[in-house]
Design a protein around this nucleic acid. Structure first.
Lengths: 237, 237
DNA sequence: CTGTCGATTTTGTAGCACAATCCTGGCGTG
DNA sequence: CACGCCAGGATTGTGCTACAAAATCGACAG
């Protein structure tokens, strides 16, 4: 029995020496964001314990981390399940995101923060859009997330950034369920314009960001949700 | 179905039949907000397990809940400790609070939300200020927190409210350490004016709230911190 | 006073046992 | 058939013990 560290560490941030529950949570998070677990999936502790070759307590701790990130919900004696989608949930989480991201932008602008990291992420997205093997859906959404995370990070407030990352994870999960199709080129152009307006500052920046959140975020998700519901209905509910 | 109810599904609320870790977390939270555990206190699992007559795993789960609420920090192999105060931490958490609360207010106003619950909390504070046995410090701060929580709740977004409650707990903990002296009457007057400006809406409301957060919140805390540091220095560091 | 090293303490994780709760399927009654 | 009821299996919640990993503390040498 010796595959105790056969697991994770994908391309997400600095994965140094972490605890066992964190490794479990990260592996499951990667799977979730890859769409491996559809809405309604229940994670059974015993099964996961066997899969990761760790104790059930460790699994429970890992699942709690996922709950913290908003990727699963937990009900007593029922365990951790992937929460269902609904228009209400999408609106709620996008309102929350808008609040955080706009607030962070205003903080950053007021403090005269350096926006070059945002620009750098936009350029990374552009490079991805121009790449020969066109980028996978996940690469694209990941690059997009990085731009917005950089905006929030510019505010320099750890509390805000942490809340935003929770929210971002939840949104990325929602996205994987309906997979709206993003055009890489168009995405790159839109965000190039966005970052230029952000550098202008003031209400121009705030309005541009609001527009982007509502358009390339919420609207795309809602449209994809409608399409998904439609095909589900055609297939017989 | 009109879904207006911002369901209070927070982890630690005062209500009966909950899980063992939640009971532990709630008890410790009450103690913390009563100032029973000074900065730097380390919670040892074995001791708590004996005290609450539960297993160590249960204690660990409870402590994780406290970490989620920002009341303690956790470092690997070092356990849960009450985080130290610093001007930087105060500024950071107040900036975060300002972002959340102002954002929530704008959401509430934009949605034409009902502000009467806020008014009700202000009246409760006024009643407290007029009471014959003058209210205890904790009653006062609790009533004050309730006002601001009501403002955030008016936005009707569970994500926002949950984040705010975390933040509010952390601020209340910081307050207990330095115990700035609030004058109940003055508090009541100030918040009566605040709620009247909130009902006006627009920038008047936003500015009034900003003023209140920075003045009766951050400034009071920073001043008290300076005093506390001064006396600590006089007593020999 | 400072640094090093070892013993002790404390946390991290595994594994088992059992209680509490849920879920499922079968059965009887209307 | 529909419906409610119940038994028994499945799953989570919690306690207990044991041991490994890391931090803490104290003695000691320089």
């Amino acid at each position: 029995m010796g595959m105790r560290e056969a697991v994770a560490r994908s391309a997400v941030v600095s994965s140094g020496a972490r605890t066992a529950p964190e490794r479990v949570a990260e592996a499951l998070r990667d799977e979730l964001l890859d769409g491996a677990h559809p809405v309604g999936t229940r994670f059974r502790e015993e099964e996961l314990a066997e899969r990761f070759d760790v104790g059930r307590h460790t699994i429970r701790a890992g699942l709690r981390l996922l709950v913290d990130r908003g990727l699963v919900v937990h009900e007593r004696h029922r365990g951790a399940v992937v929460a269902p989608l609904s228009k209400q949930r999408i609106d709620e989480v996008f309102d929350y995101r808008k609040l955080l991201e706009l607030g962070a932008l205003r903080m950053a602008l007021a403090a005269g923060a350096d926006l070059r990291p945002v620009l750098a992420e936009v350029e990374r997205l552009e490079a991805l859009a121009d790449r020969s093997p066109s980028p996978s859906w996940r690469e694209l959404t990941r690059a997009h997330s990085a731009i917005h995370r950089a905006i929030v990070a510019a505010a320099g407030n750890a509390h805000v950034l942490e809340s935003y990352q929770r929210c971002e994870d939840e949104i990325r999960l929602l996205l994987t369920f309906v997979r709206p199709d993003f055009d890489a080129r168009h995405f790159a152009v839109v965000h190039r314009e966005l970052v230029e307006k952000l550098e202008v500052g003031g209400e121009v920046a705030a309005e541009a960001l609001t527009e982007d959140i509502d358009q390339s975020g919420r609207a795309a998700l809602l449209a994809a949700l409608r399409r998904a519901e439609e095909s589900a209905r055609l297939l017989g509910h």
